[in-house]
């Protein structure tokens, strides 16, 4: 995608945020986290140097999946769980397009789990925005694959008795090269993260912690609220020590094979002991541990957690096609029909 950004930059007039706002009424509940995400995406798209005709927004089913109708781009609102497969087809058919997939925790990791992990594994160059509200909104409040164990919902009146997925762990375990996390009430951070995702070649997954005011209000409160967030979130930046908390007095340290929260100045800990974030590390070990950090024991990791560069599936496919065109004697269908064993009568 980087190349496309550069290629188009000088040729085309810069679109504006308004270019991407659709004329359709946005029908999410007032106060839903989705509104903030929409606004961030509308801010990011004009700045990517991509022609407005070259964006395609693809989604599955769920509250978040109405997204394409609210963006003035090309878009497909698909069927439940299949957005990754549809997006794959779009990208392979025309690798020049900038393909964005919008999905939720149920759409992506329950019914669409298979397509999701395989898109990630193939490293197809699409950007996946995973809105995680840890609940089924559109079907009115059943638990999802990310709902915390023991949580009471309409379909788990006694509390769930199953382990939830951690999106980052799943993505990285599925050979994912790019994983980032943002939260709906910090648009500045979200915009920054979305830029990073857009710049990356290959599948990117941005998990956005999104609040469902109706069915799961305040599920991310520890991480998001003004009072608690300093101790419960850490905005990771490549090359910087992992510090957080009021006045950046706390940090993350790697002791043995495990992460640990420490306080600067206590037990002789100085900034030098603190783990420095390396998004490019191909070894997924630390990235998985960072993804798994959960409040209150750990701060939730936000920002880009992993960004490893490898050629994408679509690039590889294009290369093989070009190579075959050069090498093959078959130049058209008439050649094909006459190849191999034939005889005249």
């Amino acid at each position: 995608m980087d190349q496309d950004i550069i290629k188009h930059k000088d040729e085309i007039p810069q679109p504006t945020k308004e270019d991407f706002v659709s004329d359709q009424m946005v029908k999410w509940c007032p106060g839903c986290g989705d509104h903030a995400i929409l606004s961030s995406v509308e801010k990011v798209f004009p700045k990517l140097g991509v022609r407005k005709e070259d964006f395609v927004v693809v989604s599955g089913i769920g509250c978040s999946s109405r997204f394409p109708y609210y963006m003035n781009t090309y878009g497909i609102h698909g069927i439940h769980g299949r957005a990754a497969a549809i997006a794959t087809g779009v990208k392979l058919a025309n690798p020049k397009l900038s393909v964005w997939m919008i999905t939720g925790d149920g759409d992506c990791m329950a019914i669409g789990g298979n397509h999701f992990i395989h898109a990630v594994r193939r490293n197809i160059d699409i950007n996946i925005l995973l809105f995680n509200n840890k609940i089924y909104g559109l079907t009115k409040g059943q638990f999802s694959p990310t709902t915390p164990k023991g949580f009471k919902t309409k379909s788990s009146p006694q509390g769930t008795f199953e382990q939830p997925f951690n999106a980052g762990e799943l993505v990285i375990g599925a050979q994912g090269n790019f994983f980032a996390r943002a939260i709906d009430n910090n648009p500045k951070m979200m915009v920054e993260v979305l830029f990073e995702a857009a710049r990356h070649t290959g599948t990117t997954v941005v998990e956005i912690l999104q609040n469902c005011v109706i069915f799961n209000n305040n599920i991310h409160e520890l991480i998001s609220s003004r009072d608690t967030r300093d101790d419960n979130q850490i905005f990771l930046k490549h090359g910087e020590p992992m510090l957080f908390g009021k006045g950046k007095k706390k940090g993350i340290l790697l002791r043995g094979t495990q992460l640990e929260v420490v306080e600067l100045g206590k037990n002789g800990i100085t900034e030098k002991d603190i783990l420095v974030h390396n998004i490019y590390n191909p070894d997924p070990g630390v990235h998985i541990m960072l993804s798994r950090m959960t409040p209150p024991a750990f701060p939730a990791a936000l920002g880009v957690i992993r960004s490893v560069t490898e050629s994408s599936f679509d690039q590889n496919m294009e290369e093989v096609i070009e190579q075959s065109k050069r090498d093959s004697k078959i130049k058209n269908v008439d050649d094909l029909l006459r190849s191999g064993n034939t005889w005249k009568i």
Binding site: A85, I86, G89, V90, K91
Partner: peptide, 10 residues
């Protein structure tokens, strides 16, 4: 589904 995506894309 990938075919539907490709169809949309021409």
């Amino acid at each position: 589904c990938s075919a539907i995506g490709a169809s949309y894309t021409g």
